[in-house]
């Protein structure tokens, strides 16, 4: 049995096709990410799977249960972190966690363990309205872990976290996975998805445009090397890279930032140097690297992630 099985899910808000025929299948113990630009339909999809919103059409099976017909059975076995965190403003961290424990019929983690999981030890007696954004976010993640969930849903769990807190949340996610639970998350950090996830789905305008392991996605989309640099000066760059040696596809130019894709790094670099010597272009910084998930994302969605 798959942990999550979604078939041809649709949800329209008036003319907006928030979710337009998404199908997913997520295995037990798998860490799976939904990636996509703002408004792609990630939150809508994840909340339909959680049973918080009703789809217009489609099938949603979670842990073998029909979410639409048995929302409470599903909710008692999953853990949910919402994108907009909402808590009892005047209760302390420990009190909120203890309160949430009473909502679940089965076994629950005690609040000390939860507080340790998300590193909130110092703040356990602080009222939630006095927490910083990142601390509130961590509390919200802790709330998703109260009931030893079999699936954990995390909607942008690391947004607003400092680098250290982010890495510590990654550890938490790996721990969850080790315990046998599945994780469905969304993120705007591609390196995070690449680091954590077994598989990812890239969503745009409510449809899945690619779904595979991060490694496969990179390989399928780029067998080339990427050369990036900033140009100094205000000369127009139109057509300047045309016919440059080794290029495999048109360059991407944004302001003064240029990205080139090459099958022959040495040849391309050589002709770039020629351009520079002839004074047709001035480099600022130059960077040669292999492709990442972010490049796949940019290529497939045609936009930067935080446009």
């Amino acid at each position: 049995m798959q942990a999550i099985e979604v078939e041809n899910l649709k949800k329209y808000y008036g003319k907006i096709r928030a979710v337009d025929g998404i199908s997913l299948s997520i295995g037990q113990g798998e860490v799976f990410a939904l990636l996509g630009p703002n408004g792609a339909g990630k939150t809508t999809t994840i909340e339909i799977i959680e049973g918080l919103r009703l789809p217009d059409s489609g099938i949603v099976n979670v842990l073998g249960l029909d979410v639409i017909r048995q929302p409470r059975q599903v909710k008692s076995r999953i853990g949910i972190q919402l994108q907009n965190t909402a808590l009892f403003q005047r209760l302390t961290v420990a009190e909120v966690l203890e309160l949430f424990r009473t909502f679940y019929p089965g076994q629950t983690r005690n609040s000390r363990e939860l507080i340790d999981l998300v590193d909130l030890g110092e703040k356990k007696d602080t009222q939630s309205r006095e927490l910083s954004g990142g601390q509130r976010q961590r509390l919200s993640v802790a709330l998703a872990l109260v009931n030893y969930p079999e699936i954990v849903f995390l909607d942008e769990p690391t947004t607003g976290l400092d680098p250290q807190a982010r890495r510590s949340l990654w550890d938490t996610i790996r721990q969850i996975q080790k315990s046998g639970a599945s994780v469905l998350l969304t993120t705007h950090y591609m390196e995070e998805a690449q680091e954590l996830c077994d598989r990812v789905a890239i969503i745009d305008s409510g449809t899945v445009i690619a779904m595979d392991t991060p490694g496969n996605l990179i390989q399928q989309n780029f067998n080339e090397t990427i050369i990036e640099f900033n140009t100094a000066g205000s000369r127009p760059l139109d057509g300047i890279f045309h016919g440059l040696a080794g290029l495999t596809r048109p360059e991407m130019v944004k302001d003064h930032h240029v990205t080139l894709y090459t099958a022959n790094t040495v040849a391309t670099l050589g002709s770039l140097m020629n351009l520079s010597e002839r004074g047709e272009i001035h480099f600022d910084t130059l960077n040669v690297r292999v492709a990442t998930l972010e490049d796949v994302f940019l290529k497939l969605t045609g936009k930067t992630i935080r446009d």
Binding site: L52, R72, Q73, K75, S76, L82, A86, L87, F103, Y104
Partner: peptide, 14 residues
């Protein structure tokens, strides 16, 4: 508006 009710709706709490 603060979505507190929504968060509670995400638990099995009747």
């Amino acid at each position: 508006q603060q979505q507190v009710l929504r968060r509670l709706g995400a638990t099995p709490l009747p």
